[in-house]
C-alpha cells in the first residue's frame, strides 16, 4: 500500500511539474497571473463501482483520490498558441485509470502502462481522437498521440467501469488543481478572459475576469452539484 500511495503522489507531482514548466512561457515580460481555489458544492465521496450482485474485485488499497484532481482549469477563449509537446501517462491500476483526468498540449503523447495482473484495453470513441490500443498485459505500455485540441474520453473495453479523460489544448493556459484545490495560471495576456473549471462529472463552470498587466488576480470556483446527484 505504502508503495502504491507514494508512487501515486510522485506521479502526480511529476505531472504538475510538467504542466508548470509547459505553462510558463519563456518569452514572458510583464505578464499577469491568476490564482485561486476550486471547491465543490458538497463533498463528493469517492466510491467503488457497485453492482447488484457481488463481484470479487480487489479492493482499493489507495487513499481515495481527491475529486479536485478531476478538475481542469483553463482559459476558454485563449488564442491558438504554439506549445511544446508533453508526455503524460495514465496508468491502469486496480481496474482504474490513474489519474482519471489528464490535460496535455497538442501533439503530446499519453502512455497507458498496465500495472494490473490482468489484461486491459484502452479505446476512445471521441471525435477529437478515436483509437483502440487493443489488449495488453501487465507491464506493457501503449501510447497515443493527440494532434487535435478537444476532450477525449478513454475507456477499457474489458472493464466497463473504467474511464478517463484526456484534455488536449492548443495553448498553454491550463492546469489541474492540487489536492487542496489551489491552482495558478501564469503569464496571461492582458484583457478580459473567460476562465473555465471543468469537472468530468459536474461539467463546466465559467467565470469572466479582467486581467491587468503585472497583477495577480484571485478567482474561486465553486462547482455546483446537480440536485439529482445529491
Amino acid at each position: 500500500m505504502s508503495f502504491g500511495a507514494r508512487n501515486s503522489v510522485l506521479l502526480a507531482a511529476a505531472v504538475i511539474g510538467l504542466m508548470a514548466t509547459g505553462g510558463t512561457h519563456p518569452t514572458a515580460q510583464e505578464r499577469s497571473s491568476v490564482r485561486g481555489r476550486v471547491s465543490i458544492g458538497i463533498p463528493v465521496t469517492a466510491r467503488r463501482a457497485t453492482s447488484a450482485y457481488s463481484r470479487n474485485v480487489p479492493t482499493v488499497a489507495l487513499a481515495p483520490e481527491s475529486e479536485l484532481r478531476h478538475v481542469v482549469v483553463y482559459l476558454r477563449d485563449a488564442p491558438r498558441t504554439p506549445t511544446p509537446v508533453m508526455r503524460a501517462e495514465i496508468r491502469q491500476r486496480n481496474e482504474n485509470f490513474v489519474p482519471r483526468v489528464v490535460a496535455v498540449t497538442v501533439g503530446s503523447t499519453v502512455d497507458f502502462p498496465n500495472d494490473d495482473p490482468i489484461y486491459h484495453n484502452v479505446f476512445s470513441l471521441s471525435r477529437t481522437k478515436t483509437f483502440d490500443l487493443g489488449r495488453f498485459p501487465k507491464g506493457k505500455s501503449r501510447g497515443e498521440r493527440f494532434d487535435k485540441p478537444g476532450v477525449v474520453k478513454v475507456f477499457c473495453q474489458i472493464h466497463s467501469h473504467m474511464s478517463a479523460t484526456v484534455m488536449v489544448f492548443d495553448h498553454p493556459w491550463f492546469t489541474v488543481p492540487d489536492e487542496g484545490g489551489t491552482f495558478e495560471l501564469t503569464n496571461l495576456p492582458t484583457g478580459t478572459h473567460q476562465i473555465t473549471a471543468w469537472h468530468e462529472r459536474l461539467g463546466d463552470t465559467t467565470m469572466e475576469l479582467r486581467v491587468e498587466p503585472g497583477r495577480t488576480e484571485t478567482i474561486d470556483f465553486v462547482l455546483p452539484v446537480p440536485a439529482a446527484q445529491q
Partner: peptide, 27 residues
C-alpha cells in the same frame, strides 16, 4: 435485475454515451 445489471456493463454503450455527453458539454 441480474440480467439488467449485466447488460448495463456493456462497454461500448457506456463509452459512447459518456463520450457523447462529455463532448456535448465541452463543445
Amino acid at each position: 435485475v441480474a440480467a439488467m445489471t449485466t447488460l448495463a456493463e456493456n462497454p461500448t454503450l457506456k463509452a459512447a454515451l459518456d463520450t457523447y455527453f462529455t463532448e456535448r458539454r465541452f463543445s
